[in-house]
């Protein structure tokens, strides 16, 4: 259940940013989460509700934009979408690849008053 620790970081960063902006209200927080980041969106939502209680974030919406993973084949340099870590290159069937994106976990933006 490492989503709890991750959510605590999200709340910490969001509240720090809100304080810096002298926000009166927070409407939403938007994340970019890679499809291979190893976190479960439902668990993040669940933890967010709990962690935002009695803070300026209470009642705000957590929006999670999923970033699909892409890889580049080490053998033939073809770029392809990686649905899971076991997929192989559609051009040459090599399994050796470098991940281009899909493991990110970033707070993108927030909407405040």
């Amino acid at each position: 259940m490492h989503e709890l620790g991750i959510t605590q970081s999200i709340v910490e960063i969001a509240l720090r940013t809100a304080a810096g902006q002298q926000a009166q209200k927070i409407h939403s927080v938007t994340l970019e989460v890679g499809s291979l980041a190893g976190v479960v969106s439902d668990a993040l939502q669940f933890c967010y509700e709990a962690c935002s209680k009695e803070t300026l974030l209470e009642g705000s919406r957590l929006i999670i934009d999923e970033v699909p993973a892409r890889a580049r084949c080490r053998d033939c340099a073809t770029e392809y979408p990686l649905t899971d870590l076991l997929a192989c290159c559609p051009a040459c069937e090599s399994v050796a690849s470098d991940l281009l994106c899909g493991e990110e976990m970033r707070i993108k933006e927030m909407e405040i008053d």
């Binding site: 991750i6 970081s9 999200i10 910490e12 960063i13 969001a14 720090r16 940013t17 810096g20 902006q21 409407h27 994340l31 990110e104 976990m105 970033r106 707070i107 993108k108 933006e109 927030m110 909407e111 405040i112 008053d113």
Partner: peptide
Amino acid sequence: APADHHHSAPHTKGGAKTISIEEDILAKN
């Protein structure tokens, strides 16, 4: 202590402002 300063670029949308954060959630770790 949460003392780090972070730059942000606000822009207005209706009454509310959208603040760009672009910070890695695991940045502290």
